[in-house]
Simulated scan of single mutants.
Amino acid sequence: MPVASDIAVELLPGTVDVAAGLEPAIEAAWVAAQVRARGRLFNGRVFSVTGLAAGRIAGRLVEYRLAVAAYADPVLAAALGVRPLAVCGVLRMPDGILFGRRQLGATYEAGLWQTPPAGSVDAGAVRDGQVDAVGQIRTELAEEIGLDWSRVDDCRAITLVQHAATGVHDLAFLLQTPARFAEVAACHAASGCAEYTELRAVPEPALGAFLCAEGDRMVPAAPLFLRAAGIG
């Protein structure tokens, strides 16, 4: 769905109740994800969407293990009613759009190409009852790519993509930078982040061919982000 470039994300009071009968399936999904991630997962709190409009997203914080369970099983996702919010960037460089291949141990869309940075909106983004979505994408850029925010000339929300099976809501931002791919790749190497096993700059005239060639090795939302940004 289209969104306002300065869309607000509001934190509602209260919690999300989980039926006791769902606990065994939730725990099984969490244990399996921990095995894939080699025990690196932390059960913090992430934002779950309860209401949507073009200029506003509303929701509550839920345990991360509920989101992981929703990723693993569409039936469980529907039963939980958890709709995790993620921020996703489209980093536009002078020599192309940045793509990264997710590591195989990722809890969601493992091994697929996506447009970094991206990550769940968590409790750290909450400021006085509001969620700082731009602050979250800034954090993800620093952690995943190592690129300083001073190298971003412009940042604006462009679309919200809803994943029917998992309930995930991707809020996409177009990030403009004067940094060329060589600088971005050097920042990524220096950061030591293993979120992506490979980075690639795809020139805008070659985007169509790249998306077609990668096919089911691309996260489904990426082409929608590019279309919303008017790229490709």
Rank of each mutant, 00 (worst) to 15 (best):
P24I: 02
P24D: 03
A25M: 04
E27P: 06
E27K: 09
E27H: 12
E27L: 10
A28P: 04
W30G: 02
W30P: 01
W30Y: 01
V31L: 04
A32M: 04
A32P: 07
A33K: 09
A33S: 14
A33L: 13
Q34S: 12
Q34L: 11
V35I: 15
R36Y: 04
R36S: 13
R36K: 15
R36T: 05
A37P: 05
A37R: 14
R38F: 05
G39E: 03
R40H: 09
F42L: 14
F42C: 08
F47D: 09
S48A: 14
S48T: 15
S48P: 12
T50F: 11
G51T: 10
G51M: 08
L52V: 15
L52G: 06
A54P: 06
G55P: 10
G55L: 13
G55A: 13
A58T: 15
G59T: 08
V62I: 15
V62M: 04
E63A: 14
R65P: 05
A67V: 04
A67W: 07
A67H: 14
V68Y: 01
A70C: 08
A72C: 07
A72P: 07
D73S: 07
V75A: 12
A77W: 05
A78E: 04
G81R: 13
G81S: 14
R83P: 09
R83T: 11
R83M: 13
P84D: 09
A86T: 15
A86H: 11
V90F: 06
R92L: 09
R92I: 01
M93D: 03
P94L: 02
P94R: 03
P94Q: 06
D95V: 02
D95A: 02
G96Q: 01
L98R: 03
F99W: 02
R101E: 03
R101D: 01
R102N: 05
R102F: 06
Q103T: 13
Q103C: 08
L104W: 07
L104C: 04
A106I: 05
A106D: 03
